[in-house]
Design a protein around this nucleic acid. Structure first.
Length: 691
DNA sequence: AAAAAAC
C-alpha cells in the first residue's frame, strides 16, 4: 500500500479537536470522506471524489499522543461509547456512524437527520468487510444501534473525569468510632440488650473475632445444613470440600442457630401490620448474629498487620486508605484465612476494600510462582446488582490488582461484549460484573468460572431477592469446587439464608459495633403534603446549591421529574433503567463531576453508589421497604458528614411511612408542608445539621 | 407493582 503523499495530518480522526463533535457530517460528507465513517484514518483512499474510499486532503494537524490521563479513561470511555443493542442486520442503514476506530473512540457520526440517500446494502456490506479487514478484531467497535445520534457518545470530558475518580468510597477519612451503620433488623427491638456492641444472646461459639483462625474448634455436629437442604443442594459436607480442608481444623462450628432462616421473625411489627394494607413485601428478616468488632480495638492496626503485601498496602495508601477501617480490620484476616465471610458494614465505610484488598492478596498468593498465562480463566468473581456499582467496584479494585500484576475486567450488560470477551481471551484474574452478562458469556462459552476460587456478592441481601437469586445461584454453582464465598451488605440479614445454606461453610459473621441511628449524622425529615403540591414542593427543595439526589419509584416519574426541574430552570438529569448505558453512565458522571447538581433516580442508584458531597436526599416517592430507605438515605451523610433526607408522603401514606421508619429504627419528625413554607427553604438551604 | 439484570 503506497504511503500517500498526504500530509501526516490527514491521518486521524480528530477526536481531540475541539471542533470535533460540533460538526455534523452529512451523508455527502461521509461519502466524500469515508474515513470518517470507517475510522480508517491511515488508509490513503482514492483520489477521486467519485470513488469510494476517496478522502480529501486536509490540513488537520497530526494526531497528538494520548496523555496518561486519556489513556486511563480510555477503557471506560469505550464502555461509555456504547449504544443501544446492536441489530445491524435489521437496521443496517445507520451502521456507518457506529464504526469506531480501534482505540474505541467514536468516529464522526452521521447524524440521524442526514440520512439522505441511504448507503444501500452493498455499500454497507463492503464497508463492514473492509473495516474488518483493516481492523481485524476491532470488531469490538461492534455497532450498537443507538436510539439517538452518535453525538451523545462524544462526551469524553465528563466521562473521563468520572472514571478517573477511583475509590472515592474508601478513601474518606471516617470517624470510625463515632458513627456508622443504622441497624437493620426489626427484631433488634426485641433484643436490645447489647453490651459493648455485642449481642448477649449470642452463644459463645459465635464469639469469633477476626483472629478466629487461632481459636480452638469447638465440638460440632455438622448436621443440619445438609439435612435441611432439598435435593438442590449439592451433596457436599463441609468436610469433604477438597480445597478447604486445611481450614477445617481451626474453624469454629458451623452455625446451627439459624434454623429459622428465611422466616420472618415474629416480632410485633407483624402483628400490628394489617397485611392487606401493608407494604407488599417489607419483610424484616432475622438478624444475623455477628461478631461486632469494636472500633477502638483495631484503631492501631495497619493493613500490613492484617496480612496484606507491600504493594497492596502502598496502593491502598494511594487510594487514601492509610489505615484499615473497622470493617476492614475485621474481615481482611478472616478472608485471607480462606473462610467464608458474611459482613455488614455501612456503605462508605470501606466495604469494597474490605473484600477487594484481601481478594487480590488471596489470588496473588494462589498464583505465587506461577506464570500468568495467556487466556487463563478468572480466579475471582465479584457480583453486584447494578452496572454502575460494578463499575465503581472495579474502579477501586483495579488499581490494587494492577499493583501486583493482576488484571480485572468488568462484565456487565448494556455495552458491547467484544471488549469484555477480548479481555477474557487474553486472560484476566478478577472479574467484576452483573449476573446477566456473566451468565450470557458463560453460555456462549466465552467465560469459564470453574477456576474461580473466591466469589464475592456485594449487596448480598439484594442479590437474594426475587429475580436475582436464581441467576446468582446458577453462577455460584459454576464457580470452582469449594470456592470461598464472601457476602457483604449494609443490610445483611437472614434474607441471605438461602445462599448461606447452599454455598457457605461455617461463615464468619462480622459487623462493626455501635452503629445505629443515634450516631448517625443524617437528619431525617418527613413532609406530609398534598399530592397536587408535589411538583412545586420538589422544585423548591431541589433548587439549591449542593448536590441533591431525588428518588422516585418509577422510571417514568424519574424522567418526568428531571424534565420538570429543567423546565423550572434547575439543571437536572435522570438515572434509571430505561436509559441506555451510555446515558446512565454519563448522567451519573454529571452529578459526580458537579456539572449537574440534581440527579433524579430510581432505586438503581439506591445501593452502593458513591457520589461525594450529596448533602440532600429527597424521596419524591417513599420507598416500600425499610431497607430501601436505609440504602437511599445512605447516599448522603457519608463518612461522618452531615446530610439531610427528606421524604414526601401524602396523608394516606403517613401511617405506612411511620411503620417503615420504625422498622428502620429511624426517628423522623413528620411535618405538614405547603408550597412556599419556610420549612422548605430551611431544608433546602441548610448545609449543616444544627444542634 | 417496580426496579434491577442479557441479547
Amino acid at each position: 500500500m503506497p504511503k500517500n503523499k498526504k500530509p501526516a495530518g490527514g491521518r486521524a480522526p480528530k477526536n481531540f479537536d475541539p471542533r470535533y463533535g460540533q460538526k455534523k457530517s452529512s451523508y455527502q460528507d461521509r461519502k466524500r470522506r469515508p474515513d470518517a465513517a470507517y475510522g480508517a484514518g491511515d488508509k490513503p483512499g482514492s483520489r477521486s471524489p467519485k470513488h469510494r474510499g476517496y478522502r480529501a486532503e486536509t490540513d488537520e494537524p497530526a494526531k497528538r499522543r494520548w496523555t496518561a490521563q486519556e489513556r486511563a479513561g480510555r477503557d471506560e470511555a469505550r464502555g461509555i461509547r456504547t449504544h443501544a443493542p446492536r441489530d445491524r442486520d435489521a437496521r443496517p442503514a445507520r451502521d456507518e456512524r457506529r464504526f469506531a476506530d480501534d482505540r474505541g473512540r467514536p468516529t464522526a457520526g452521521a447524524s440521524r437527520s442526514h440520512d439522505g440517500p441511504r448507503g444501500g446494502w452493498r455499500d454497507r456490506a463492503e464497508a463492514t468487510e473492509r473495516r474488518d479487514d483493516a481492523r481485524g478484531p476491532a470488531r469490538s467497535g461492534r455497532p450498537a444501534r443507538g436510539d439517538r445520534p452518535a453525538r451523545d457518545d462524544r462526551r469524553f470530558d465528563g466521562d473521563r473525569r468520572y472514571t478517573d475518580r477511583p475509590a472515592r468510597d474508601d478513601r474518606r477519612p471516617t470517624d470510625r468510632a463515632a458513627r456508622d451503620d443504622r441497624r437493620f433488623d426489626g427484631d433488634r427491638r426485641q433484643n436490645p440488650t447489647r453490651t459493648g456492641g455485642r449481642y448477649q444472646e449470642r452463644p459463645a461459639r459465635e464469639d469469633r473475632r477476626f483472629d478466629g483462625g487461632s481459636r480452638q474448634k469447638p465440638a460440632r455436629d455438622g448436621r443440619g445444613y445438609d439435612d435441611r437442604r432439598g435435593s438442590e443442594r449439592p451433596t457436599r459436607r463441609y468436610d469433604d470440600r477438597p480445597v478447604r480442608d486445611d481450614r477445617a481444623g481451626s474453624r469454629p462450628e458451623r452455625r446451627t442457630d439459624d434454623r429459622r432462616a428465611g422466616r420472618p421473625n415474629r416480632s410485633d411489627w407483624t402483628a400490628r401490620t394489617a397485611p392487606a394494607q401493608q407494604d407488599r413485601v417489607d419483610v424484616v428478616h432475622d438478624r444475623l448474629r455477628a461478631d461486632a468488632v469494636q472500633a477502638q480495638d483495631v484503631a492501631d492496626t495497619t493493613f500490613a498487620d492484617l496480612g496484606l503485601g507491600d504493594n497492596i498496602v502502598r496502593t491502598l495508601d494511594d487510594l487514601g486508605a492509610q489505615r484499615p477501617f473497622p470493617i476492614q480490620a475485621s474481615t481482611i484476616p478472616v478472608i485471607l484465612d480462606g473462610r467464608d465471610v458474611l459482613a455488614r458494614g455501612r456503605t462508605g465505610s470501606g466495604k469494597t476494600i474490605a473484600f477487594g484488598a484481601p481478594l487480590v492478596e488471596a489470588v496473588l498468593r494462589s498464583q505465587a510462582g506461577q506464570r500468568r498465562e495467556f487466556g487463563r480463566s478468572p480466579k475471582a468473581l465479584i457480583l453486584a446488582p447494578t452496572r454502575e456499582l460494578a463499575l465503581q467496584i472495579d474502579r477501586t479494585i483495579q488499581p490494587i490488582a494492577r499493583s501486583v500484576g493482576l488484571f480485572t475486567t468488568q462484565i456487565y450488560g448494556g455495552v458491547p461484549q467484544a471488549r469484555q470477551v477480548g479481555a477474557l481471551k487474553k486472560g484476566v484474574d478478577i472479574i467484576i460484573g452483573t449476573p446477566g452478562r456473566i451468565e450470557d458469556l458463560v453460555e456462549q462459552r466465552k467465560l469459564d468460572l470453574s477456576e474461580v476460587r473466591i466469589a464475592v456478592l456485594d449487596e448480598a441481601d439484594h442479590m437474594c431477592e426475587l429475580g436475582f437469586l436464581e441467576p446468582v445461584q446458577r453462577i455460584l454453582r459454576l464457580t470452582g469446587e469449594g470456592s470461598q464465598k464472601l457476602l457483604f451488605s449494609a443490610t445483611l440479614d437472614r434474607e441471605v439464608a438461602s445462599l448461606v445454606d447452599e454455598f457457605l461453610v461455617e461463615p464468619a459473621v462480622h459487623e462493626v459495633a455501635g452503629e445505629d441511628q443515634a450516631s448517625s449524622t443524617i437528619d431525617h425529615r418527613v413532609l406530609v403534603i398534598d399530592h397536587r403540591d408535589k411538583p412545586e414542593i420538589l422544585a423548591s427543595l431541589v433548587d439549591r446549591e449542593g448536590k441533591t439526589l431525588v428518588f422516585t419509584r418509577t422510571r417514568a416519574y424519574a424522567e418526568m421529574l428531571a424534565e420538570q426541574f429543567e423546565d423550572a430552570g434547575i439543571h437536572a438529569v435522570a438515572l434509571h433503567g430505561d436509559l441506555n448505558q451510555a446515558k446512565r453512565t454519563r448522567n451519573l458522571a454529571r452529578l459526580t463531576s458537579g456539572r449537574v447538581s440534581v440527579l433524579v433516580a430510581t432505586d438503581v442508584a439506591a445501593r452502593g453508589i458513591h457520589v461525594d458531597d450529596i448533602d440532600l436526599v429527597v424521596q419524591a416517592d417513599p420507598p416500600d421497604e425499610f431497607k430501601t430507605y436505609l440504602h437511599r438515605s445512605g447516599r448522603t451523610g457519608r463518612a461522618g458528614r452531615a446530610g439531610t433526607v427528606v421524604s414526601l408522603v401524602t396523608r394516606q401514606r403517613r401511617r405506612r411511612m411511620a411503620e417503615l421508619l420504625d422498622r428502620a429504627e429511624i426517628d423522623a419528625p413528620f411535618e405538614e408542608a405547603r408550597p412556599g413554607d419556610d420549612l422548605l427553604e430551611e431544608l433546602s438551604g441548610r448545609q449543616v445539621v444544627p444542634v
